[in-house]
Design a protein around this nucleic acid. Structure first.
Lengths: 225, 225
DNA sequence: ATCCCTTTGTGAACCGATGCACAAAGTAAC
DNA sequence: GTTACTTTGTGCATCGGTTCACAAAGGGAT
């Protein structure tokens, strides 16, 4: 006999981890609407996945459902939050305060639930000293000092492509191991560092590929009427 | 002499499609530096993948390499571009000109290689009429007319979450089948429509998960009692 | 307590993607 | 032409992830 509902398996599949935030968002919406319990079927629809996948995903965290009933919304929110590490406060630094950096600094989704923009940095003397989203923009020379002083553990790179690798090396040197990279370059980092990449241009190209195929295959190329 | 290198298999794996833009970027860099040919090994390193995977990916397009030599850079650029549909011009509309929409409108990576921002739309009368990145911001009421008139085939959603589904429905109704969604919602669309999602908050949460795991080490798991 | 109904949790088949390892195909030198 | 060397293209084993389908587990009614 096993003790039920322990987070038993520490090795949660990567694909599952990537979907947990999706479930969490759907659950938050339900909690706000006063929903107390939810079936895997309903939650799956809200999150845009199939229900068997959802159940298997949740089963990796533990056995948090009740057969014949479903999942208790508040409880599940808590369990997923804890698993994702959102019960603690993460200090994030945004490096590069161009158009994108500004947009990120002002993005509400950052501030909510566990993440706090703790620093903005840039190399351009023109913007250093400006206040954006209530934060003072600091000079990139201060990078290491700021990261240590504010306990930054996640760095968002919104610099030009040329600068990204250098900034990356510097933040790794002071112990940062989680990086979200918006610059269109392949960063080279030690295995111990996690890099996630968001690349707008790549997403567009993937869409173009499928669009072209739908349009009639590579044979019709021209004709834009 | 046979005609080698026909794009034989029309069914290119999704995972391969997602990496082609990466190869393309690396190849462009090499072309600019005057490199004429490249081995799978070198290109793989530049793109951050392993060389067997790269060769298998390229083999889906056709047999464009020369054994003992490698791949001709210019030729491969052309073949990948063509396969991705970048030899034609794609008109993109950005809906929602908040911080993010502005950043996207000004993002150079859009304009380059095949993509052209053809329209900016917003619901806020305050920004309608403004000029951003050389484009006039039009009112969302004009959405359908603008899409048809300018031949827009890819729509970028940078609206608030609440507005995304409605805009999505409207653009689909006028025939758009490729959508890049930045709003933090699960869009519901017919199967015939491609939606790609970019979600900053999800990326951060995935990083937090791994960061938490690293921080506590494999032992921190509170252990089962 | 028993029966019926609902929904979870998961074994097992399946499917696509990865990576090894090597034969095939080319170049270069003599 | 022959030999030595390089690098591609791919067969095959493997792996992680998805989906199906169902037994097990709970609730509620009688």
């Amino acid at each position: 006999m096993k003790s039920p509902s322990q987070p038993r398996d520490r090795g949660i599949p990567e694909a599952t981890v990537a979907r947990l935030p999706l479930y969490l968002r759907a659950l938050h919406g339900m909690a706000e609407r006063g929903v107390a319990t939810v079936s895997s079927e309903d939650l799956a629809v809200a999150a845009g996945v199939n229900s068997a996948k959802l159940r298997k995903d949740l089963s990796h965290l533990g056995s948090y459902g009740t057969r014949g009933v479903g999942y208790e919304v508040e409880y599940l929110v808590y369990q997923i939050s804890r698993e994702l590490g959102l019960t603690q406060d993460w200090a994030v630094a945004i490096v590069g305060v161009g158009n994108l950096g500004r947009a990120l600094a002002n993005y509400g989704g950052f501030a909510s639930r566990g993440f706090r923009v703790a620093a903005l940095l840039d190399a351009d003397p023109e913007v250093v000293g400006d206040t954006i989203a209530g934060l003072n923009v600091e000079h990139i020379d201060e990078l290491e000092a700021v990261i240590k002083r504010r306990g930054v553990s996640i760095v968002v790179l919104a610099t030009p492509a040329e600068a990204a690798q250098e900034v990356c090396d510097r933040v790794i040197a002071v112990g940062v191991t989680s990086i979200l990279n918006f610059a269109p370059v392949v960063l080279s980092v030690p295995d111990s560092v996690d890099v996630r990449k968001v690349d707008l241009s790549i997403e567009l190209q993937i869409l173009a590929f499928h669009e072209q195929r739908k349009a009639g295959g590579p044979l019709m190329a021209v004709d834009s009427q």
